[in-house]
Design a protein around this nucleic acid. Structure first.
Length: 498
RNA sequence: GGUAACGUGGCCGAGUGGCUAGGCUCAGCUCUGCAAAAGCUGCUACAGCGGUUCGAAUCCGCUCGUUACCUCCA
């Protein structure tokens, strides 16, 4: 496979060939959730998108260190002086310790992502576990003259930074424009300029989450954790930084500024990857609009917008059938179509498990053209992924391949028309991409107990008809599954074999 | 107001200037005891108007429409 992976880099606004700094190692940092609420479809999109990147990089032989954080402190409700921490606010509301809130929602996040078959990251650092690193970074930024202290709080000095650097290079913002924007001048208070942002906030007397620092008892600003933790685990220059498009500004812009301001010789992330939003009726799905659907609601169908429940793999397929940089519109119709498409791919997997390559027995000529066509289809599957992780194209190619697999299964294409190499290639490609790279897996079949009841019904009928050969077969086959039939006076039942 | 996108057939959703992605839906056919599945066939679209070009869904301009970011959001 001579194709190379191309990724769209937000920094350059171009697709670029991905070349890691220190192949075969790849460092990848992705912004995880702020754990103060249940994960919704939008979280799933981000997680699945970067799961594909992680899986594909590993599939291509890279040794990836995947770091995805959990924000458990410092994410303010607003940027004004009275800004309250999201976690703390939730804790007050629910009469819980902040860390109880954090643990609760982190657990749910993990649980839901596991259902979506999203691989866990290699390191999952928490902001609260890296206060020391963050304080150190603030000190460096202060020492370099890019921050100032006011009343125990420390703010990043964007205009000082702007003299030698380019604040806005990621998001395309221009500092003068930002300054000219007088839309919201209230609550600036201590900040010298509205574009400055907090590195450290002094805690008010009632604030529960607080740590000692050289400046005050307080807590770190939200943007800082990602700078500090990515540097700690991946270095001052690393390969990939990912996150939702809505984090591009100000979060990621601030991150870059902090990295540069604390350590000028590091580049930070070289490739910035942003996934687009899920929309509902063309509008962004988000907390503030209240139009979001939690993953648990999707899985249970318990939401007014949902006509039915949708399985985790249906959701995963739904996400993968669009390119990650496009918005993806939620609708019941789209999810129902996704469910069918997913099932179709799974049926292909089952067929491949069953069919075997058979050597030429009949006088059927190997079909060179067909072999070539099939091999091209397998290449197309990878071509999609290599073109900026275009899973939509990969899935389309897999469906094309599936058509041939189905034809092969029905004998419309004779196995002898293929070479063994071609057959192995299409089988391996299909299985590898569906299972390992796209991360689609079979979901449990229907109710096992109901199926067992059906078998017991046949057992009963066979016994009544005195067809003991059939009876013996049923018993033997069930025993292979670790199940024994119990003929009781009261009826027939089953139990696990002890 | 500033910045950036987007507008593709009944629906979702790809798309490198020329060789009509794919899925779902619908209709027909093959197969089938009846079905289902699968295969085949059909429904052939690119917001509008100009321009560049031998040729544009794809490049450029204008118009209309939708959205995102600029405040928290994956």
């Amino acid at each position: 496979m001579q194709q190379k992976l191309n990724l769209y880099n937000t920094l350059t606004r171009k697709k670029e060939v991905f070349e890691p700094l220190h192949a075969p190692f790849v460092g990848m940092y992705v912004c995880g959730p702020t754990v103060y609420g249940e994960p919704h479809l939008g979280h799933a999109r981000s997680a699945v998108t970067f799961d594909i990147l992680y899986r594909y990089l590993k599939n291509q032989g890279y040794k990836v260190r995947y770091v995805r954080n959990v924000t458990d402190v410092g994410h303010l409700e607003n940027d004004a002086d009275s800004g309250e921490d999201k976690i703390q606010q939730k804790a007050k509301l629910e009469h819980l310790e902040p860390m109880e809130v954090v643990q609760h929602y982190t657990n749910i996040y993990h649980e839901e992502l596991r259902k979506l078959n999203v691989l866990p990251p290699d390191i999952e650092p928490r902001a609260s576990g890296h206060i020391i690193e963050q304080i150190e970074m603030i000190q460096e930024i202060l020492d370099n003259g890019f921050a100032y202290e006011v009343n125990g709080s420390v703010y990043f000095d964007v205009q000082a930074y702007q003299k030698d650097h380019n604040y806005g290079k990621l998001s395309g913002r221009v500092v003068e424009d930002l300054l000219g924007n007088t839309r919201d001048t209230e609550g600036q208070g201590e900040k010298r300029s509205p574009v400055d942002f907090a590195l450290w906030k002094k805690a008010s007397p009632t604030h529960i989450m607080r740590w000692p620092s050289p400046w005050s008892d307080g807590f770190p600003g939200w943007h800082l954790e990602c700078s500090a933790m990515s540097r700690k685990y991946l270095g001052t220059t690393f390969d990939i930084h990912g996150g939702g498009l809505d984090l591009m500004f100000p979060h990621h812009e601030c991150e870059i500024a902090q990295n540069k301001a604390s350590c000028d010789h590091g580049e930070g992330a070289r490739y910035w990857i942003h996934n687009n939003m899920i929309t509902v009726g063309g509008q962004k799905m988000g907390k503030s609009l209240g139009n979001f659907i939690n993953l648990s609601q999707l899985f249970s169908g318990n939401h007014e917008m949902l006509e039915q429940a949708y399985s985790p793999m249906t959701i995963r397929f739904f996400i993968l059938q669009a390119h990650y940089r496009s918005t993806l519109d939620f609708s019941n119709e789209a999810l129902q179509a996704a469910r069918k498409g997913y099932t179709k791919l799974m049926n292909g997997l089952n067929i491949l498990k069953k069919i075997r390559y058979t050597e030429d027995t009949a006088a059927v000529e190997p079909d060179a053209k067909l072999n070539e066509e099939l091999l091209k289809l397998t290449e197309d599957c990878y071509r999609g992924l290599n073109d900026d992780l275009n899973t939509a194209r990969t899935i389309a190619s897999l469906f094309n391949l599936l058509k041939k697999i189905n034809s092969l299964n029905l004998g419309q294409i004779k196995m002898e028309q293929l070479s063994r190499g071609t057959f192995d290639t299409i089988r391996d490609t299909y299985q590898e991409l569906v299972l390992e790279v796209l991360g689609l897996q079979e979901e449990a079949l229907g109710d096992v107990e109901e199926m067992l009841d059906l078998v017991l019904q046949f057992y009963k009928e066979a016994k009544e008809a005195k067809q003991y050969d059939k009876v013996d077969v049923i018993r033997a086959e069930l025993k292979k599954q670790g199940i024994v039939i119990k003929d009781l006076k009261t009826g027939i039942d089953w139990a696990y074999e002890e």
